[in-house]
Design a protein around this nucleic acid. Structure first.
Length: 818
DNA sequence: ATCGTCGATTTTTTT
DNA sequence: AATCGACGAT
């Protein structure tokens, strides 16, 4: 995203009122009717209403994105606003790009100049522009939560605060909550009780944390919002440029905004008083409608869309009261209610309505559809998590058989840990799937290492990044050496980076000194490659990254390693280089910091690739805002949904219910609710109880393939009668006898386990290494050339003696070592 | 400084 | 089950 943005730019061009505006007063001109034609009456009001503030209460699937995009398009098409006067805030990057696309589609032109982005992206953009007002440079690093935790971990260790019961997560959570409430160290200490040693310690931790970030020229996620609010409040003249530019502010998922985000919106939509206008001395005249008639500028028009029933982020500071109190906060506001649902069948909606009705402190709202009841919700109680997973896999296969695309199906779960069983079974059942937001690509250690190299180049002050790579690959720089370097830097008041360069003065052994100086040279060399004054010209990000990876020895150490996983890691790093190239194509003017920003702000749902043709697996949180033809909501059990951890928290069970509600309302045609009677966790198996939320669904809406009661009282025998095995997947038939033999020793005498194991062979963790020989049932003997992938998805690349080269999924391929 | 082993601890959700 | 940290051996 190139930043050719200037807040003063082009808002004032429109001193002449376009003729279309005069015409539009009676709402009857032809051109824009196209934008209203396919809207219901409420949606129309939401699109056409003009006023200082509008709250659109949009039930699930009621077409809120449609309303927002049409509203924006209409503002533009009617010449009520220039594209640059629009600011639309969404929750994820995916939602933002989707909205941009749809607006462009409606307008038939590019939406250039509009800001359609997430809170965090918008804040980064503002902060980088205005960084001169802070003690940071525009090249600041963004610390993700893992980075924050690393910093906190070191502080806790240094201060030995674990003796007072401080843990990384408790401190990280508290700091995050404070920042979301716009409370900084000083603000906190003002009301802290200093008689309490824990309080004193916390203040000290908080203070050090803030200092580390400041010295590292870094912001954490929460700072991005909080510091922007601070900027808005402290520098009215700066803020006025944004307040003047953005005449129409639209916010999606308003129920998930926290206090900092709320304040951000508040500041941005404030009127600009006359004296500020005069001080700034805007060169251009403001659009007539923004003139308050007294030399000032009226506040921007604010449109928020939300549904308090879908508020599922209270745990991290989201305050759905923001939506409840909108009318009080913005006195001249209006409210539009969207209840007609265009997504799901009535059976699904009735279930959702019945469940959410149990939350008492809500405005009553009932979703309805004109599209009929549809099929019943299917319920299934498995005996174990694996049995449940098998049900999911079977139903997916059945749906696929009758023509449903894999990409139209999704499996939801409360916790990421539940993916294990699901993945195992889906692999065995040959169902193509993707896990969204599991261990993300950018969270892998080797990727974070490579990115840390880039971060040290982009931001030489970034101590965390430098410390991360100082001994990666192993250079013989252990903690002792590192501590000495840090002390040296502090004593001489130089940066750690500078200390590295001058390390020969420290009297380390020649080997270590050489390694340190070599690292400093590589980093400086990379910096030079990006120097705009470099006579050789600036290098691309990919070139810099490749330079760093090669000269530092990082990539070689991975390639030379004996650990077979390092080969995969090297491939991941190569993949990262490819990502930088792709970034350069999409962002011709993109600088290194822009790349690092983009990488830091990707969310789980952003990974979604609609064209992938696979079933999507994700947590219920990630699922918000998405929809699928068929949805499998798994693990509907007590202690899981609602989660055990939510029980103690005030409002916890209600929030969990909303989570369940969000899951239900993602489904268009088919909804499957499943649970297991026993679930493995911490490596132990415990008994699970059906979720209380299940009882809240009218019994007539669910057709139980195996009800919780039946599963308990009749053991496994009943399940097969009710749920006869379907035939599919003939490809393993030939070695089925072998599988039976292998599993017969340990197989309990219940029918349900055999349902799973007889399906496909399982080589489990068969160890294969490059160079090894194997025999394949069909292809004969061959040599393994390499092994890629991890866990259940490990793939052997085999060159068969017949000459054929094949890639085989190790877990299920009919192969054996020879 | 690095590697290996043992034991503790973990799992709620994420921009 | 799997990761992480502490500790001891090399």
């Amino acid at each position: 995203m190139s930043d050719a943005f200037d807040p003063d730019y082009d808002t004032g061009r429109d001193v002449v009122v376009p003729a279309t505006i005069l015409e539009s007063d009676d709402g009857s001109h032809g051109q824009s009717d196209r934008l209203l034609a396919d809207l219901n009456p409420q949606q129309r009001v939401a699109v056409e209403y003009r006023g200082p503030a509008l709250l659109i209460v949009a039930g699930a699937g009621s077409g809120k994105t449609r309303v927002l995009t049409h509203r924006i398009a209409r503002l533009i098409e009617n010449n009520e606003a220039w594209p640059s006067e629009i600011l639309a805030i969404t929750f994820t990057n995916k939602a933002a790009s989707e909205m941009r696309e749809r607006v462009e589609q409606l307008l038939g032109q590019s939406a250039e100049g509009m800001w359609i982005s997430t809170f965090h992206s918008a804040c980064v953009r503002i902060l980088r522009r205005e960084s001169e007002h802070f003690g940071v440079t525009s090249g600041f690093t963004i610390y993700d939560s893992a980075d924050s935790r690393t910093v906190i971990k070191r502080i806790i260790k240094d201060l030995r605060s674990d003796t007072l019961g401080f843990t990384v997560s408790s401190v990280a959570g508290k700091i995050s909550r404070l920042k979301n409430d716009l409370i900084d160290v000083d603000g906190y200490s003002r009301q802290a009780n200093f008689d309490d040693p824990r309080e004193v310690m916390f203040v000290e931790i908080f203070r050090r944390y803030a200092r580390v970030l400041r010295e590292s020229n870094a912001f954490d996620f929460d700072d991005l919002i909080g510091q922007t609010v601070y900027l808005f409040r402290a520098f009215p003249l700066v803020t006025a440029r944004y307040q003047r530019r953005f005449r129409h502010v639209l916010v999606d998922e308003y129920q998930d905004t926290n206090h900092a985000q709320y304040s951000w919106i508040r500041e941005l939509t404030r009127p600009v008083p006359r004296d500020v206008v005069e001080q700034v001395g805007f060169e251009t005249v403001v659009r007539g409608s923004a003139d308050d008639g007294n030399g000032g500028i009226i506040g921007a028009s604010l449109t928020v869309v939300g549904d308090s029933d879908q508020s599922i982020y209270a745990f991290r500071g989201a305050d759905s009261r923001n939506i409840g109190e909108f009318e009080r906060d913005f006195p001249e506001s209006s409210v539009v209610l969207l209840e007609q649902n265009y997504r799901s069948t009535q059976n699904i909606l009735s279930a959702a309505n019945a469940v959410i009705a149990n939350n008492f402190d809500r405005k009553d709202k009932k979703l309805w559809t004109a599209d009929g009841d549809g099929e019943k919700i299917v319920g299934y109680t498995g005996f174990s998590g694996h049995d449940e997973a098998q049900f999911v896999a079977d139903e997916i296969a059945a749906l696929h058989k009758v023509g449903m695309d894999y990409r139209d199906m999704a499996v939801f779960y409360r916790t990421n840990a539940q993916t294990r069983a699901l993945e195992e079974i889906l692999i065995r059942s040959a169902v193509p799937y993707r896990v969204l937001g599991g261990t993300k690509f950018y969270e892998r250690a080797e990727i974070k290492d490579a990115l840390a190299y880039l971060a040290t180049v982009a931001n030489p002050h970034d101590v965390l990044a430098l410390r991360r790579i100082v001994n990666v690959p192993k250079r013989g720089i252990g903690s002792a050496t590192e501590t000495q370097l840090a002390r040296f830097a502090e004593a001489n008041e130089i940066s750690l980076r500078e200390a590295l360069r001058n390390s020969s003065a420290l009297g380390f052994g020649p080997k270590i000194t050489g390694a340190i100086v070599q690292l400093a040279t590589v980093l400086d060399g990379a910096s030079a490659m990006l120097d705009p004054d470099n006579p050789a010209g600036q290098s691309s990000i990919a070139e810099v990254l490749t330079f760093l990876l090669e000269r530092s020895g990082f990539i070689d150490s991975l390639r030379a390693s004996k650990d077979p996983q390092d080969e995969t890691r090297a491939e991941n790093v190569d993949e990262l280089v490819a990502v930088t190239r792709e970034f350069a194509v999409n962002n011709p003017d993109g600088q290194l910091v822009d790349f690092l920003t983009e990488v830091a702000l990707v969310a789980a749902a952003d990974e979604l690739d609609d064209s992938s043709g696979t079933v999507s697996l994700m947590t219920l949180h990630t699922a918000k805002g998405l929809e699928y033809e068929a949805v499998f909501l798994t693990g509907v059990e007590e202690d899981l949904l609602p989660h055990r951890m939510s029980a103690g928290e005030p409002g916890g069970p209600a929030e969990e219910r909303r989570l369940f509600y969000v899951g239900i309302t993602r489904a268009r045609k088919r909804l499957f609710l499943s649970l297991a009677m026993t679930r493995a966790q911490f490596g132990e198996t415990s008994v699970a109880m059906p979720s209380r939320y299940l009882q809240e669904i009218p019994t007539g809406l669910i057709e139980w393939r195996q009800s919780p009661g039946a599963a308990t009282s009749h053991g496994g025998t009943r399940s097969r009668a009710l749920n006869p095995p379907r035939d599919r997947f003939g490809h393993n038939r030939r070695d089925s006898s072998k599988t039976d033999v292998a599993s017969s020793t340990s197989e309990p005498k219940t029918a349900w386990t055999s349902r799973i194991t007889s399906k496909a062979r399982d080589n489990g963790d068969l160890e294969l290494a490059p160079g090894g020989r194997i025999r394949h049932l069909d292809f004969g003997e061959g040599r393994v050339s390499r092994v890629t992938g991890e866990g259940a998805k490990r793939i052997a690349h085999v060159e068969f003696d017949s000459g054929a080269a094949k890639k085989l999924l190790i877990k299920i391929a009919p192969i054996e070592k020879i």
